[in-house]
């Protein structure tokens, strides 16, 4: 790890000013930043510690929606009764992520900005070619081992998976990311790699996430997160799905549904086709399985990750059934 300067920001303004310097990086829980600094992927010259900023870790759950301060830790949000009751997908996505220790450290803001686990990205010494890390150098994954790489949203420049869980739940629930400058809908927040995989979100230099706002909807209150992986715990998703489901008063007709996928795409992946195919339809297993197949429309395999194209629709279907009380 290169050496760096360290300072503790005492106000948001100060943090934003400091963060505008080239070479400056914000530090929240540090579980992504320090990890990547050790691999020499991140090379900060100055680290600005946000964690002591006042007022950025509150969680408010109200009638119209919830606001979660960017510095709230994953564990605090997961343990919040209001979140558990009104946004179960959020609580579940957090509890299924990382480990208890990491969840105590990691913040909600930092969590959204975690970087890919692509092994080539994380190994600059072994793989100088990585467009995401060093733009224009090529992609070591393409033509290599790709079991954990994306099948959706890829480009010829990068096929890395967005690894996080929370952002998938937030996508399904239509969250908004608030920064010191603006509010950004989560759909617009994450970018596909295209020709610029190094740019993963629309955040500008010096822009700081301050909170995440989630609207209160019946669908959010009846939401769930399903994560599939080889190891029972402490592992990223092979595929995951977040589903919010609202039924008509008849208890079987789908009034509204929102679905997002994780572990298979370059960003948290809304499955709008699945939603459209199910809105107004009857909630039964056959219909759900049929509709879930569209979740991977346009998916492209790179060999080792082909199984994800088969797996993802099953995960979506089961998550929808689970949200609908069909176990």
């Amino acid at each position: 790890m290169m050496n760096f300067d360290y300072s503790r920001a005492t106000s948001l303004e100060e943090a934003a000013t400091l963060a505008r310097h080239p070479g400056a990086m914000l530090l929240a829980g540090g579980t992504t930043l320090l990890d990547l600094a050790k691999c020499e992927v991140a090379r900060p010259e100055r680290v600005i510690d946000l964690t002591r900023l006042p007022g950025l870790n509150t969680i408010t759950v109200g009638e119209s929606g919830a606001t979660i301060g960017a510095l709230a830790t994953m564990s605090r949000v997961a343990d919040d009764h209001g979140i558990q009751r009104r946004y179960p997908a959020i609580a579940e996505s957090l509890l299924l992520a990382a480990s208890a220790q990491l969840r105590n450290m990691a913040t909600i803001g930092g969590n959204l900005l975690q970087r890919t686990r692509c092994p080539y990205f994380r190994d600059p010494a072994g793989y100088p070619a990585c467009n995401k890390r060093d733009p224009g150098t090529g992609c070591s994954a393409i033509g290599g081992i790709t079991r954990d790489h994306a099948v959706l949203g890829t480009s010829d420049h990068c096929i890395a998976v967005y690894p996080g869980d929370l952002a998938v739940a937030l996508s399904a629930l239509g969250a908004t990311i608030q920064t010191n400058l603006r509010a950004i809908e989560i759909e617009a927040f994450f970018l596909m790699p295209g020709a610029t995989p190094e740019r993963e979100t629309v955040l500008e230099r010096g822009e700081i996430i301050t909170a995440i706002a989630v609207p209160a909807t019946p669908l959010a209150a009846n939401s769930t997160y399903l994560k599939v992986r080889d190891r029972q715990s402490y592992e990223f998703a092979a595929a995951s799905a977040a589903v919010g489901l609202e039924l008509d008063s008849d208890g079987v007709t789908i009034r509204d549904i929102r679905v997002a996928l994780g572990g298979i795409a370059t960003k948290p992946w809304r499955a709008i086709a699945v939603e459209d195919a199910l809105r107004g339809r009857r909630l039964d297993e056959g219909t759900v399985r049929e509709a879930s197949r569209t979740a991977v429309d346009g998916a492209k395999s790179h060999g080792g990750n082909a199984y994800k194209i088969e797996l993802a629709p099953c995960v979506v279907a089961r998550a929808i059934l689970k949200a609908g009380g069909i176990q």
Binding site: R117, P119, D123, G126, G143, G144, I145, Q232, S233, Y234
Partner: peptide
């Protein structure tokens, strides 16, 4: 131990990618 067929590098050379059982397994 997942080996890159192109250069013989071990891609799973860490405790997240070389998965040993956790307590939950």
């Amino acid at each position: 131990g997942i080996t890159d067929p192109r250069n013989g590098r071990i891609l799973s050379a860490n405790l997240a990618d070389y998965r040993i059982p956790t307590n939950a397994d």
